[in-house]
Design a protein around this nucleic acid. Structure first.
Length: 428
RNA sequence: GCCCACAUCGCAUAAUGGUAUUGCACUGGUCUUGAAAACCAGGCCUUUUGGGGCAUCCAGGUUCGAUUCCUGGUGUGGGCGCCA
């Protein structure tokens, strides 16, 4: 959500931002908000004036009662009796207007950063750097799912039986590798000074609405039947929610937290859920990082966070590229975002492995996350970034570290988490 | 699942129908070479910048007026039950 004052003072700027995102259908919303907002302010003034009048009379009644002039008080009470009804009438109007305005405001996208490239959709995202050398071995790289099923380390058939497509059983060394990746990611972030957290894996609706856009909620979130609870799509949801309605003191920012959680996603409307394998699944596990900071520091944090993930993948011997989201592909709450993509030597292209975003004050406004300033409080900025998500990262490991015989080299960094093991399996 | 109690600015606390008190902390400002002390200020909305309104967990109700009374909900603590 953006500041309504921005629309009052500079509606054109907000419209330009909407155009950059190719959401022209929302332009009319801005005009509508301007109109309703003017009406709301006028009505609110009316109600406030009535209240003011009532309060003054009430105070007089109080004074008269104290000096026992009951007769005079009684006549004032009669006079005051007529006011609440008038207040009520206008109040209903004011409430309705405010609600309508808020509903519309939630649809207005966050102001994107000046550095974000204008573009219509993901085909226009911008490559901003490659780290590591993408390998293309002369021998055939096996598909991760077939290879692992062949080794008895992955069971998709049974998972289809218990839970359906998009689920999996990881087994033996592959399951262990999955845990190793996450454990290494956890320690990697702790070393960088982040505080490790394990958050609730379910959240209430008000929190969900605060951290994500309506669209996301619809396409991503599983709801628990009969309860006010949703399964989280990422620990970012509960971790940012943790700060709901909190005013942080200067000494409490920046908040640098790294969290582990399973992530649940419906992936409604997404391609590839039918694709065999671990790429797009309904349930995965992720080590995440979030930062809540002073507004003027959020882009520094954005850079730092992005660097962390890139460095992490370097330690896994997986080449990556950074792909900046263009304006049209950017989520409505995000001011800037960059995907970290891992190299696939089999498909000879990069695939999404993580995503770093600066949401500026969009989530903070929805949730009421503020910083205590000297004169008035102000909204904090929130950021989130993937350290690593598994099993998707396992695909990268299986492909990039695959030997001619189908065995997988375990990166040095992960070996301590695998009981010193240096290699996984041989193809049968 | 049942019963009881409680919910006031970061912490603590007062007002029991008369317009939210006090202390500590924190932040900003004044003063200062600098700091401490002292003093002033502190949330949200609106404003013609004088003000005005709102805010005691949430939503309603009674009232001229609700922190206080009533109804419903949420949360927290404790007791019982259930499960491990």
């Amino acid at each position: 959500m953006i500041d309504i004052k921005l629309i009052r003072e500079n509606a054109e700027l907000v419209k330009e931002n909407i155009k950059k995102k190719f959401q022209d259908e929302k332009l009319a919303l801005v005009d509508e908000i301007v109109k309703l907002d003017a009406m709301w302010r006028k009505e609110k003034k009316g109600v406030d004036d009535l209240r003011s009048e009532r309060n003054k009379i009430s105070e007089n009644i109080n004074r008269l009662m104290k000096i026992k002039k009951k007769g005079e008080a009684r006549s004032l009470i009669l006079k005051a009796k007529t006011i609440p009804e008038k207040i009520n009438k206008i109040e209903i109007k004011v409430g309705k207007l405010a609600e309508e305005i808020k509903k519309m405001m939630l649809k207005i996208p966050n102001m994107i950063d000046a550095s974000v490239q204008k573009g219509k959709d993901d085909s226009e995202n911008v490559e901003v750097g490659i780290v590591g050398k993408p390998k293309t071995p002369s021998y055939e790289i096996f598909n991760h799912a077939e290879l692992m099923e062949g080794m008895g380390l992955l069971d998709l058939d049974s998972a289809r039986k218990t839970s359906g497509t998009g689920f999996y059983f990881l087994k033996g060394d592959l399951a262990r590798l999955h845990s190793a990746v996450l454990s290494f990611a956890r320690d990697f972030m702790i070393e960088k000074g982040f505080e490790y957290c394990v958050p609730p894996f379910m959240i209430r609706e008000d929190v969900a609405k605060g951290v994500m856009s309506f669209e996301e909620m619809n396409t991503m979130m599983y709801k628990i039947e009969g309860e006010d609870l949703y399964m989280i799509g990422t620990s970012e949801h509960s971790m940012i929610g943790m700060f709901k309605d909190r005013t942080l003191r200067k000494g409490e920012v920046p908040q640098m937290l790294t969290s582990y959680s399973p992530c649940f996603r419906k992936e409604r409307g997404a391609h590839g859920i039918e694709e065999k394998g671990l790429y797009r699944v309904h349930q995965f596990e992720k080590q995440e990082m979030i930062v809540i900071c002073e507004p003027e520091e959020s882009y520094d944090w954005y850079d730092k966070m992005l660097k962390s993930t890139v460095k992490f993948f370097k330690k896994l011997d997986v080449p990556v590229r950074k792909l900046e989201c263009c304006s049209g592909d950017l989520g409505d709450l995000k001011a800037k975002s960059c995907d970290v993509e891992a190299w696939s030597p089999r498909q000879k292209k990069y695939f999404e492995a993580g995503s770093c975003s600066n949401l500026t004050d969009a989530q903070a406004r929805r949730l009421g996350i503020k910083i205590n300033g000297g004169k008035g409080n102000y909204f904090a900025h929130t950021l989130n970034n993937t350290v690593v998500a598994s099993p998707r990262t396992l695909i990268a490991l299986i492909e990039n570290n695959q030997n001619r015989d189908g065995s997988i080299n375990i990166p040095k960094a992960l070996q301590p988490y695998m009981g010193g093991m240096k290699k996984i399996g041989m193809k049968k």
